[in-house]
């Protein structure tokens, strides 16, 4: 079912979603950039944008998430406080405190583009495989996605090449696109139907149009093979890489996380085990006991990132790990462009 609404009517959707109990996340323009953020009642979502500098990952896999607490066998000895770590000193009788009470907060992502919807699909593929990550699943279940079609990318986009301008079935509850001075909306799920029933609308016949967004620079993929990537020269273009890790931080599909135990001096035996963000561009990602770092050179880290997006993901998940959003290029201070590494410019 497809309907036509005015822009004003479309902008009613976030508050209708909140009324249905969702916490609405939407693109917001601030300080010259657009980013996804919780939508307050006084802020309007941005509809005319190309790029958000963060992604749904920020909300689905939050940094610094408390997983559970445990009691370590901390004792205050004559030599001060002594905590027995289960890992450092062999198994110790720790009591896991099941303090994790999932907050049933239903998220609604409003106005995200196709590449970002595809990133949710990729994260699902990784996080919901057996056994599903309960923390991720808790947030993902019952989430609402209101996708907004993107017509033209900027100079960093590559969704045409990767086919990620198409929204995979079941991944959007409604789809929206600009049409004349109003918007066309397609209801794709029951939840979408329920939402749209609340709008002043005009039914439209026909199929929801699929269009390929215009690319500023168009590429075709020439390599996604592990060994080919390894054999390629990359060091020259990487001299300017500062190892800032912006490429992985802003990538919507980078899911690497670390585990950190958090202590306090108030109750030192009560330890909070948390999940924090990690990146293959950081040294500790590939440093092992004894101090050896496998991915020591910038070139190796860059290639690792590219290999994870292409051969590793294709082999492990049968899905390309890159949605072509271009964040890793747009946010790289050195302007390092992986498209030139794995692809060839086409006119």
């Amino acid at each position: 079912m497809m309907i036509r609404v005015s822009k004003q009517e479309l902008l009613e959707l976030p508050s209708l979603l909140s009324a249905m109990g969702y916490s609405v996340i939407a693109p917001i323009r601030t300080g010259g950039i657009v980013k996804l953020a919780p939508l307050g009642s006084d802020i309007q979502p941005e509809l005319e944008y190309v790029r958000v500098v963060n992604s749904p990952k920020k909300f689905l896999l939050p940094d610094d998430e408390l997983l559970f607490r445990y009691r370590s066998t901390a004792t205050i000895t004559s030599y001060g406080l002594k905590i027995r770590f289960p890992t450092a000193e062999g198994p110790c009788p720790v009591a896991i405190l099941p303090e994790y009470n999932p907050v049933r907060e239903r998220l609604a992502l409003f106005g995200i583009h196709q590449c970002m919807v595809n990133s949710v699909r990729y994260l699902d593929t990784v996080m919901l495989r057996d056994p599903a990550d309960p923390y991720y699943k808790n947030r993902r279940d019952g989430m609402f996605i209101a996708e907004l079609d993107c017509d033209a990318g900027d100079e960093y986009c590559m969704c045409r090449t990767l086919g990620t301008y198409k929204v995979p079935a079941g991944y959007a509850d409604i789809r929206m696109r600009k049409s004349g001075d109003g918007y066309l909306i397609e209801e794709a799920t029951e939840a979408g139907k329920e939402l749209l029933s609340k709008l002043k609308r005009q039914d439209v016949k026909g199929k929801y149009p699929i269009s390929v967004p215009k690319m500023v620079k168009d590429f075709e993929l020439v390599t996604r093979d592990d060994q080919e990537i390894d054999a390629k020269e990359a060091s020259r273009s990487l001299v300017a890489c500062t190892l800032c890790a912006a490429c992985t931080v802003t990538c919507p599909t980078c899911y690497c996380m670390d585990i950190e135990d958090k202590f306090s001096l108030i109750d030192p035996s009560n330890v909070g085990r948390t999940r924090t963000k990690m990146s293959c561009q950081r040294r500790c990602y590939s440093t092992i006991a004894g101090g050896t770092t496998f991915l020591a050179a910038k070139e190796e880290r860059f290639k690792w990132r590219v290999k994870h997006k292409f051969p590793f993901s294709i082999n492990a998940f049968k899905l390309v790990g890159c949605t072509g959003c271009g964040n890793c290029i747009a946010c790289c201070p050195a302007g390092i462009d992986f498209r030139e590494f794995v692809g060839r410019r086409v006119a």
């Binding site: 940094d63 800032c244 890790a245 931080v249 802003t250």
Partner: peptide, 10 residues
């Protein structure tokens, strides 16, 4: 930069 970008700062 790592933390700056994570916060989504321009």
């Amino acid at each position: 930069c790592y933390e700056c970008r994570s916060k989504g700062n321009p």
